[in-house]
Design a protein around this nucleic acid. Sequence first.
DNA 1: ACCTGAACACCGTTCAAGT
DNA 2: ACCTGAACACCGTTCAAGT
Lengths: 197, 197
Amino acid sequence: MPGRPYHHGNLRSALLAAAERTVRERGVQDLSLRELARDVGVSHGAPRRHFPDRQALLDALAETGFDRLGDELRTAVDAVGDDFEARLRATAVAYIRFATADPALLDLMFAVKHREQAEHLQQAAERAFSVMLEVILQGQAEGRLEPGDPERVGLVLFATIQGIAALLNGGMVVPEQLDELLDDSIAHFLRGSRTAV
Amino acid sequence: MPGRPYHHGNLRSALLAAAERTVRERGVQDLSLRELARDVGVSHGAPRRHFPDRQALLDALAETGFDRLGDELRTAVDAVGDDFEARLRATAVAYIRFATADPALLDLMFAVKHREQAEHLQQAAERAFSVMLEVILQGQAEGRLEPGDPERVGLVLFATIQGIAALLNGGMVVPEQLDELLDDSIAHFLRGSRTAV
DNA sequence: ACCTGAACACCGTTCAAGT
DNA sequence: ACCTGAACACCGTTCAAGT
């Protein structure tokens, strides 16, 4: 391994890693391509080969964010056995943990203007949310949730979970209230869905 | 009214108005103090008297945002008579309308780092949300919602509404799904709360 | 194929000086 | 009390040139 080769070798992933760190620690508005290039030891023009502009880097960050979210949801659900309610709660907790551990990244993931043209990103998002969909399907199969389009049934819960994360990140709910709020939300969801129609 | 006096006269509010417009049309990241100063016809150093830095302007925008949100919620609730469920729905619709008409402003309102030190802002937020709290109290008085701390009871609904707005703004829910999702959410909330405990 | 470095037009912030 | 204008250090973006 040479001391400082002309070609960085893995500049793209090095930039993404550094960017992810900055976004997490200081927010998107403090992310500078030039600073990133300095951190990684490359000239300020170099990132352009891999990310045509700042937005392209942010889109790439969003995509890896969805990948990581999917992984974390999957891991959380798998770790908890196959009781429906336990899996439901584990999914919610994992989502909220992700969202609060990296608020700026979540914003980035929701901030995609051109969702149609960003095919990769769309797919990454669907992979992530497929974990939640599976849990909904299980709930329907066990008669714990109303039948019908699982996406529709799950949307209310997804919205609530996302809202809880937003309230936490906005400081409108303090962490001490989280358990209670989550219990209430899941209880509402289950009670509301059981004998629906 | 002189053509171009040395003192602008109401520079602060002129800057805020121009800023609100830019944020709505182009987002926060495109908001430049220098451009604002140009638009308003003042030198680039002038805003500093009224907003020590960019963040101060953003905080002020958030505060006027809460004021406007409060007004819109109030108007919506008052316009609908005194049926509890109608008022509940009107509040939700008004919140979502505000959030989707001006997504960047809502982000700003949720993005306050130093919520404790920003006393004004805190109060503006509480005024805005007091409308929702009143509706919850009415629901409890009429036995349509479970008794107990109204803030706790309302939080689930607030989270869901905020989540719906986020899903819409993120393109994860298309406007055509909104009515259905809102119906489902309110139905869940009412069914889940009625015979609670 | 990938990176460098000068160039351009733009920022936010500071501060002496003007009215 | 409020605003101007020069100055500074930083950006993102572009592009010829180097390896």
